[in-house]
Simulated assay, not measured.
Amino acid sequence: MITTKPKIYKGLLIVFSFLLLASCKTYLAPTYNQVIVDKATEATTETYLFLATVAGGSDNDTYFRRESTYNTLISKFETLNLLAKARPIPSNKTTQRINNLLAERNSPSSSSDYPSAFAFNRIVENLVKMKEKDQASGLNPIVVEAFKGEIEIFLDQAITYESFLKR
């Protein structure tokens, strides 16, 4: 009879430990934010509309007509970058192990920007370069297409990542 009590206690301890651990969650990504997705969708639509208006090229003499659109788009993507970065980056043993493995391979760690924040920042950089080129000498259709291609890559990355968080 003495041997059954330790077995019962051991069994209860195992069940209690399992229940305790089962209630723990490990977060490897930020929580989904509908505001970021909505604002990203809106900014994407406006960006494609703007790119369509300059697709045939532009003359620097008419740059003043487009300046406010550039400024609006840049500010929208800077805001999205800020919103994406404002979420806390999870820190736990799992993310530390991932970062250690990435460091061993000389890859950027996951504790840097979220992919969407990185992408929003790159969109801003491209719009700023496009704005400067437009102001200095205008844009020819090939240059517009090159900027569009680069911006499109980062729009896809940001929207894909933010949509994926809705799990």
Results as ranks from 00 to 15, higher is better:
T95P: 05
L21Q: 00
L73S: 04
A55L: 04
L139D: 08
Q34M: 11
E46P: 02
N92Y: 10
R167F: 12
T72N: 12
D113H: 00
A117D: 00
K25H: 11
V144E: 06
L28V: 15
L20E: 03
N60P: 10
I2E: 13
N106Y: 03
V144D: 02
P88R: 03
T3Q: 13
N126C: 05
N126K: 07
D61E: 13
T94C: 03
L49N: 15
K85R: 15
L28Y: 14
I14K: 07
S111M: 04
R97H: 05
Q157A: 14
I8P: 02
L80G: 05
K85W: 03
T26Y: 10
V37S: 05
Y9D: 10
K148V: 00
F164T: 15
P108Q: 10
Y32L: 06
P30G: 14
I8D: 11
I8H: 09
P108C: 04
F50R: 11
A29I: 12
E46M: 11
T41W: 00
K93C: 04
I153A: 08
L83V: 04
L102D: 08
L51F: 08
E125Y: 07
G56I: 00
T160Q: 11
S58C: 02
E162F: 02
S110G: 11
S111V: 06
Q34P: 02
N71A: 11
T4D: 08
Y27I: 00
A84C: 10
F64D: 14
K76R: 10
I89Q: 06
A55N: 09
T94Q: 07
N140I: 13
T72R: 09
S112N: 13
P88K: 03
L102V: 03
K133R: 12
G138W: 05
R66T: 01
A146H: 06
R97C: 01
K10N: 09
R87N: 07
E150W: 01
P88I: 03
K10G: 08
S23F: 12
T31M: 08
S116D: 14
L28C: 09
G56K: 12
Y32M: 03
G138P: 00
E42T: 13
T47G: 06
R105Q: 14
T47V: 02
Y114G: 02
T41V: 10
S17F: 15
A55Q: 15
C24E: 03
R66Y: 09
L73G: 04
E132Y: 08
L127C: 04
R122T: 03
I159M: 09
Y48P: 01
T41C: 03
Y161D: 07
A86T: 12
F16Q: 03
I98T: 04
A136W: 05
Y48K: 13
P115M: 11
S58T: 14
N100P: 01
L165Q: 07
G11A: 13
L101M: 07
N126A: 07
F120K: 00
S163C: 08
A86S: 15
N33T: 13
P141W: 02
S111P: 02
Y9H: 10
E104N: 09
Y32G: 02
A22G: 04
K7F: 06
M130A: 13
K93I: 15
T3V: 06
I8M: 14
L82P: 00
T79A: 06
S75Q: 10
E104C: 01
A119I: 01
P108W: 04
G138M: 04
S107I: 10
R167T: 14
S163N: 15
S58E: 00
T31V: 09
L49I: 05
E67I: 11
